[in-house]
Design a protein around this nucleic acid. Structure first.
Length: 480
DNA sequence: AAAAAAT
């Protein structure tokens, strides 16, 4: 990739010595914005692929450490085994923007806490994965890094990335997610007689991590780094706030110096404030304006449908008719029941899909995800189970069968979930399209609120019955 | 029953 002007003027993020109070953040008194080159693109032969627009990430440092963004992985002084993992296994060439900015902050002493926001599909996972791998003392066979995630699927996916990246490092890792439920006594029992965890990196869901800590099967004594993936959800009142705080305070008791990293594409004001409160005094922050969070490469559409059947018809005869040619599709629904019903309806009219939701047995969930990731299935119906973090390159279409709404305020959109859902398409700068299926005034109002929140105009597909309208939409998204 | 999560 051609070097930009910004490349030569290696930006030093100026050290700020002031406090980290929110008032300061608001005044941008200690903020310095930096500009660096575009994301590195690895698969330029992909026809659904283009250079994502350069995005602004606002950097706020505290303490007196100056950071220089890394334009190459070599500058990060990584162990050769890790560099090999990045180049050979991950097929990375250069750090993406968020990686260039955050990795120096993560990897260099004094290992400050970090609150980091970056666009969906921009390479956040690699940031904290590399962070965990680099900070492990290979000789010490004890847990030194935790990563907690909101779903089991995400924990499994993150472990897969970590093992790939760390393939030559010899660092040990495992998932801490619940294996057996209710009547699967043998599995539950298996876990209760398990020996203590010796893996150096543990990635899991909050409940299971707490359970292992309480059972004294997961030592905190050597912990160096804690990662909260999808951090805004992990810290949300109606998310995993209680569990996350519990884990953090247990760690602080034993190990007050443990570095904490919060990563997500979204941070609403409430969560942002809370995160800034619970990190250690000196810490770093990276933020993106919500108006700049929408991916330029993913086109959003709305379709007015007279009734639920029309929504089904639109999915089958208008969108998937062409959609199947351009990649995989995820259809998001609001409830488990909605997932089951839509699945049944589509099958009834002769269209085969798979469905995932939290009420399924874990082995079925695993199988459905695997089939989809292996490309054996084209269309996947999902609840918000897969709204966050799920990474599948080939997903070019997202359909919101139901719009995401706040559970205690059904007339209000859940803008964060909306952003995460549409972020399942357009991974790493690929092109994609989102179709929001609206039915009635209430839906239209919610859609308008979403548009206002992100300051984006969502194009309307004029007529749900007109095939040509959808062809135009997909073509304009760059998919046909 | 919002969904997720050792609920």
């Amino acid at each position: 990739m051609a070097a930009t002007a910004a490349d030569s003027a290696a930006p030093t993020i100026s050290a700020a010595d002031t406090t980290t109070h929110l008032a300061d953040l608001k005044h941008d008194a200690i903020a310095s914005e930096i500009e660096i080159g575009n994301l590195t693109i690895n698969e330029s032969n992909n026809k659904f692929f283009h250079d994502p627009e350069s995005s602004n990430i606002k950097t706020i440092t505290s303490g007196d450490t100056p950071y220089v963004s890394a334009f190459t992985f070599e500058e990060l002084n990584l162990l050769p085994e890790l560099l090999k993992g990045l180049y050979v296994e991950m097929k990375y060439e250069k750090p993406s923007k968020i990686q260039a900015i955050s990795l120096p902050m993560i990897l260099n002493p004094p290992y400050l806490d970090l609150i980091a926001q970056a666009h969906n599909g921009s390479g956040k996972t690699a940031c904290f994965t590399l962070g965990m791998l680099s900070r492990i003392d290979p000789k010490l066979k004890a847990p030194q890094a935790f990563c907690i995630c909101p779903t089991r699927e995400l924990a499994i996916q993150n472990l897969e990335v970590l093992r790939k990246m760390g393939k030559y490092s010899g660092i040990t890792s495992e998932c801490a997610i619940r294996a057996g439920f209710g009547n699967e006594f043998h599995k539950v029992k298996e876990q209760s007689i398990r020996p203590p965890i010796t893996s150096q990196i543990v990635i899991g869901t909050p409940g299971t991590i707490i359970h292992r800590i309480r059972a004294n099967k997961l030592s905190l004594s050597y912990l160096k780094i804690l990662v909260l993936d999808e951090a805004d959800h992990m810290l949300a009142e109606d998310g995993f706030k209680g569990d996350s705080v519990d884990i953090m305070s247990k760690i602080r008791c034993v190990n007050p110096q443990c570095q904490v990293l919060f990563f997500s594409a979204t941070f609403n004001e409430t969560v942002k404030e809370f995160a800034a409160k619970i990190v250690k005094g000196n810490h770093n922050q990276l933020f993106v304006k919500k108006e700049e969070l929408s991916l330029q490469s993913v086109k959003q559409y709305k379709v007015n449908c007279p009734d639920e059947l029309a929504k089904v018809m639109v999915i089958k005869d208008r969108i998937l008719e062409f959609g199947e040619r351009v990649g995989q599709t995820i259809i998001f629904v609001r409830t488990r029941n909605s997932a089951i019903t839509l699945h049944r309806t589509l099958v009834e009219i002769g269209y085969d899909v798979t469905t995932i939701q939290g009420a399924l047995k874990q082995e079925d969930r695993d199988k459905i995800v695997k089939e989809f990731k292996d490309g054996l299935t084209q269309v996947l119906i999902s609840t918000d189970l897969l709204a966050r973090g799920f990474d599948q390159d080939q997903v070019n279409l997202v359909i919101n069968y139901d719009l995401p709404v706040k559970h205690n305020h059904p007339t209000e959109p859940d803008c964060e979930v909306y952003m995460h859902r549409i972020g399942r398409a357009g991974r790493f700068g690929r092109k994609g399209a989102v179709f929001n299926l609206l039915c009635g005034d209430a839906d239209e109002k919610i859609m308008t609120k979403i548009e206002k929140h992100f300051g984006t105009e969502i194009a309307e597909v004029p007529d749900w019955r007109n095939e040509e309208d959808f062809v135009v939409a997909l073509r304009s998204a760059g998919l046909l």
